[in-house]
Design a protein around this nucleic acid. Structure first.
Length: 831
RNA sequence: GGACGCUUAGCUCAAUGGCAGAGCACCUCGUUUACACCGAGGGGGUUAGGGGUUCGAGUCCCUUAGCGUCCACCA
């Protein structure tokens, strides 16, 4: 075969890829026995919802360089490819498509929507696989995994089950980030903080002035909070009640003192909206305050808003302020108040904090061993400063909300059903702290009997408590001899806590029933009269009563398979997609042949974008250690963003997106690959300039022509003849020898950008410009011809080997055309 | 508010404490049978500013400024 004309990538790339694939050497099992020591990289699963972008091309390039290098060095090399269903991301992409077609997911049956997205994803998956091949990825397609594969899902379920058994997963009613457009909760990582200027309203709240940027949330505010040390409010007691005029009429407000308040901000007093604000939620939790929803999940006001009910929060604001002004409740309005609001990272719409029951993962216990692994150097980061960044994040980690209210994803393997009402004759022990006004038990344990099927009457204990529940039912507040006047963890069964000024007043509402343990109504009233000490106390502090209602407690079943009894309902939520991809290393390797996990786990390198270090890398480390006891990878190599030629972030709206497939088409894959690597230091963003790629297209042509020259001139060489090398030739070969050593060291240090530059420079400016030029004379001289032929071929073939990881197509094609009788892909890396 | 980066030729970026470099761009010359997707040569720098450590600093330390990213808070 003869090399001809200019290098034409299009003619050879598909052919060469097929040659590699047919050889079977992408699969480590097919490599010869010399390849013993495993080397593993997992391809970060690309989102199967569109085309590959420039960032993916960089991932494929760097990982293929590592893979080809290690394979040539004789490692049993596995690069495992995969695709991600990409839950929320894909659903958002699909919803946009629906929108264009004038359709909406909310008008579709869930199953119908799921099937459509599945089809869409599978099509994209196929498309992307083709694009990965186009980029020359030497990954083992026989081990390819998709995040929705049955074996991956099974592993995800098992992990969830184990986490639940270890008490690391819990269901909680907590405040979450709610996107009203997408109708789902989002983790903190999926929200953006956007600076904006709004008005800050100072509203009169009884004797207080409170500042708010969101008057439309304030309807239900019935607690006014201030710092306990704030002298301005010293005359107000914690728990003190105040009657005041508010947006829709008179309300009773309660004073709460809490250190969380910034005395410097506004007036130092604020009202709280626990249902729609994370800080307020925290205060309400701490003080056991009521929480009331004001805004529904579509961003509209609920009936608590009175005349404003049903309005979108945005439009309601001005009208509410108008009303407040009319009522004289607006003290002043500060214009141009700069603050940050949270927005959905996909649609930029405002995040509305909402209280919602969700699955949460306790992160602190999972983070601790991960921190240890990183600190001890079991996992190293490239570039190194990511060590600090990840440690800082892990040390300040918060619980992870796992539930997403979307259809596209792995369904959470939890089933619920209403617990049958237990009304047996059992006796529960119930701890009581404080004083029971009826029989005076103080800080003790009281035995409460339950009666089958009927409550004991309102305002009394009756048995729907679980063992160990704490109920406090007392006369006074916490200021008085340690008796506390609130209800602790049995809130589920407490309907209401009422306060009465006198016991008579309470009896009006709650007539003691005949079946109160051991006492009749008459006895209780009589007993009451005999306790003047309690009278005094009640006169001072009033009396508290519990109104208890029956609670249907939900029973929860968690397992890898559905419960086989009927009337269980599966949780309609799906997992955050990162919960499944966070298990990628062990899930993929356990899915394949049983020996794979043993051979290839822990993997060697995790190469991915610095952007997703928290989303993905940190979670893989935590879940990997938790599940397998071992770190999932030893080295984390993080590349930076790929930017456009001007250093701008690529985005569809800016229209500066560089499609790697177009570049490949125009200049060839090898030019794109080396263009992506050259000058690309880890962690640093890279400006991708088409001109740069063009330059490397020229380099590819240079290689092609140099090979052509060598081929033409060595055709008549006698390979068997003994050759005596002149000193100049020896020097050239020695120089190459040194270069090989340097490059090997650089490759081992992950400095591909320098390695690429070195070989580029050597090949073009030493081999082509000097050695080949000089050889023209030497080849013409019969005395030096043979030695020169030998040297040229030696340098060319060694260079091809070094270039191969970077520019696999052209090097392999030349190798084949030189009739080397082997695949360059599995040639021994020069030593 | 906290953390982490970055600042080197016109542009994009390199440089274990040891002669400041590459690619692209620019200028001059050259069409020579491997290649014009080429060759030979050239210009271009107070390494953001200031201070310090050192025989020696782009590199280490302190400091100022600008840019960027992440985290937290934001009534």
């Amino acid at each position: 075969m003869e090399l001809e004309g200019q290098y034409d990538a299009k003619k050879i790339e598909d052919k060469i890829y097929k040659l590699w694939e047919d050889s079977g050497f992408f699969n480590p099992d097919n490599l010869d026995k010399k390849h013993k020591k495993p080397f593993t990289i997992l391809m970060p699963p690309a989102n199967a919802n569109g085309n590959l972008h420039a960032g993916h091309a960089l991932v494929i390039t760097i990982e293929d360089i590592m893979t080809r290098y290690k394979r040539m060095q004789g490692f049993k090399t596995l690069w495992l490819p995969g695709l991600d269903h990409a839950g929320f991301e894909t659903q958002v992409v699909y919803e946009k498509k629906l929108e264009k077609e004038g359709r909406s997911r909310f008008k579709m049956a869930p199953e119908e929507l799921y099937q459509e997205i599945l089809q869409f994803t599978l099509e994209n998956k196929k498309n992307i696989e083709g694009q990965i091949k186009k980029l020359g990825a030497s990954c083992d397609w026989s081990r390819e995994k998709f995040t929705l594969d049955a074996d991956i899902v099974k592993t995800v379920y098992e992990t969830f089950d184990k986490l639940k058994k270890d008490n690391l997963v819990y269901r909680g009613r907590k405040i979450i980030n709610w996107c009203s457009k997408h109708q789902t909760s989002l983790s903190d990582l999926e929200t953006l903080d956007v600076e904006q200027a709004d008005k800050l309203y100072y509203l009169k709240y009884g004797p207080f002035v409170i500042a708010t940027a969101r008057p439309e949330t304030k309807f239900g505010d019935k607690y006014v909070v201030m710092h306990p040390k704030d002298k301005r409010y010293a005359k107000y007691q914690n728990g003190e009640k105040l009657s005041l005029e508010w947006i829709n009429g008179p309300i009773e407000a309660t004073v709460v003192k809490d250190e969380a308040i910034d005395m410097e901000f506004g007036t130092g007093a604020m009202t709280i909206t626990p249902w729609h604000d994370a800080v307020d939620f925290g205060i309400a939790e701490k003080h056991k305050l009521d929480k009331e929803q004001v805004i529904d999940f579509y961003g509209k006001l609920l009936p608590i808003a009175g005349e404003f009910t049903g309005m979108k929060t945005g439009e309601a604001r001005a009208k509410i302020v108008e009303k407040l002004q009319a009522k004289g409740l607006v003290e002043k309005i500060e214009e141009n108040y700069k603050h940050a609001v949270k927005t959905c990272y996909k649609c930029n719409s405002l995040i509305e904090p909402q209280v919602k029951e969700q699955w949460f993962l306790k992160m602190k216990p999972l983070a601790a061993p991960a921190i240890k692994a990183i600190e001890s150097g079991k996992i190293t980061f490239i570039p190194a400063h990511y060590k600090k960044i990840s440690l800082h994040w892990l040390k300040n980690i918060l619980d992870w909300p796992l539930s997403r209210q979307i259809i596209w994803g792995i369904k959470i393997p939890a089933w619920f059903k209403d617990k049958p009402k237990v009304r047996d004759e059992k006796t529960w022990e119930m701890k009581i702290y404080g004083r029971d006004i009826f029989d005076g038990i103080v800080n003790g344990t009281k035995k409460i009997e339950t009666r089958a099927g009927r409550p004991r009457g309102e305002g009394k204990y009756w048995g729907d408590f679980k063992p160990g529940d704490t109920v406090v039912f007392s006369l006074a507040n916490e200021k008085n001899d340690n008796v506390i006047s609130s209800v602790l963890p049995v809130q589920k069964s407490v309907k209401k806590v009422s306060h009465f000024a006198t016991i008579e007043e309470m009896f009006k509402k709650y007539e003691p029933g005949d079946d109160y343990p051991g006492k009749t109504a008459a006895q209780i009233k009589k007993w009451w009269k005999q306790r003047p000490d309690l009278h005094t106390r009640i006169q001072r502090y009033g009396i508290w009563a519990l109104e208890l209602t029956e609670v249907k407690e939900q029973e929860v079943y968690i397992g890898t398979t559905p419960p086989n009894i009927e009337d269980w309902q599966q949780d309609s939520d799906v997992f955050d997609t990162w919960f499944s991809s966070g298990q990628w290393p062990f899930a993929t390797l356990r899915a394949g042949q049983p020996k794979d996990f043993k051979t290839f786990y822990p993997t060697d390198v995790m190469e991915t974008a610095g952007e997703i270090i928290f989303f993905w890398v940190a979670r893989m480390i935590m879940l990997g250690i938790y599940t397998t006891g071992k770190v999932p990878f030893k080295t984390v190599y993080l590349h930076g963003l790929v930017l456009d030629a001007k250093g701008q972030k690529m985005s569809k709206s800016k229209g500066n997106v560089i499609n790697p497939m177009e570049i490949t088409d125009k200049y060839g894959t090898d030019a794109l690959r080396i263009g992506l690597v050259m000058g690309n230091t880890p962690g640093q963003s890279l400006a991708l300039d088409e001109n740069k790629i063009k330059g490397y297209r020229n380099f590819a042509n240079k290689i092609w022509n140099a090979a052509k020259f060598v081929q033409m001139n060595v055709a008549d060489s006698d390979t068997k003849a003994k050759i005596k090398l002149p000193a100049a030739h020896k020097k050239n070969l020695k120089e190459l020898q040194i270069l090989k050593k340097e490059i090997t060291k650089l490759m081992d240090d992950f400095k591909f950008y320098i390695a690429a530059e070195k070989i580029y420079h050597y090949f073009w400016h030493t081999f082509c410009d000097k050695i080949i030029e000089e050889s023209k004379v030497q080849l013409a001289d019969t005395k030096t011809k043979q030695a020169t032929q030998y040297m040229l071929l030696e340098i060319l073939t060694e260079s091809l080997k070094i270039l191969h990881p970077f520019m696999p197509f052209i090097t392999e094609e030349i190798w084949q055309q030189l009739n080397m009788q082997s695949l360059l892909m599995v040639e021994q890396w020069p030593t």
